[in-house]
């Protein structure tokens, strides 16, 4: 069995995802970076972008985050994001409606999500 690392994606409202994965790709402010098992401890500021979860060489989950923080230590990757949306279950029409009612920052984020769907 392949080595895995534990991913936690946490927003202020709840824990979005918590699972063992083979690789996580996160949008750092200084560029995308991937985290494999036994990655060196790292604390990175994240920008708006997509967090990709890789399992068995394939992308299994994609989350859009609106900036945040990644804390990699030992076998644990914690991503703290103020806003996050699971692209796998997102619905463009519903998001569009939400964006119309949201404030500027929120709407900008939702539009970015819609574009990347």
């Amino acid at each position: 069995m392949a080595e895995t690392t534990q991913l936690e994606l946490v927003t202020p409202a709840r824990i979005m995802a918590q699972k063992s994965v083979q690789m996580v790709v996160a949008p750092g402010v200084e560029g995308l970076f991937g985290v494999l098992p036994r990655h060196a401890s790292l604390l990175a500021d994240l920008t708006r972008g997509i967090v990709e979860v890789h399992e068995d060489g394939k992308v299994t989950d994609r989350f859009m985050i609106d900036g945040g923080l990644a804390d990699v230590s030992g076998e644990l990757v914690t991503i703290l994001a103020e806003r996050a949306i699971d692209l796998g279950s997102a619905d463009a029409a519903a998001l569009k409606e939400k964006a119309a009612n949201a404030n500027e920052a929120e709407a900008a984020f939702l539009n970015a999500v819609i574009e990347s769907l």
Binding site: E30, S41, L42, L43, D45, S73
Partner: peptide
């Protein structure tokens, strides 16, 4: 555990960007 962390960007910058967030 904290002594051999890598930071991206540099620690000072990271701290400056995080402190407003911890208030919120």
């Amino acid at each position: 555990a904290g002594s051999n962390y890598d930071y991206e960007p540099e620690e000072d910058e990271l701290l400056a960007s995080l402190l407003p967030r911890i208030i919120s």
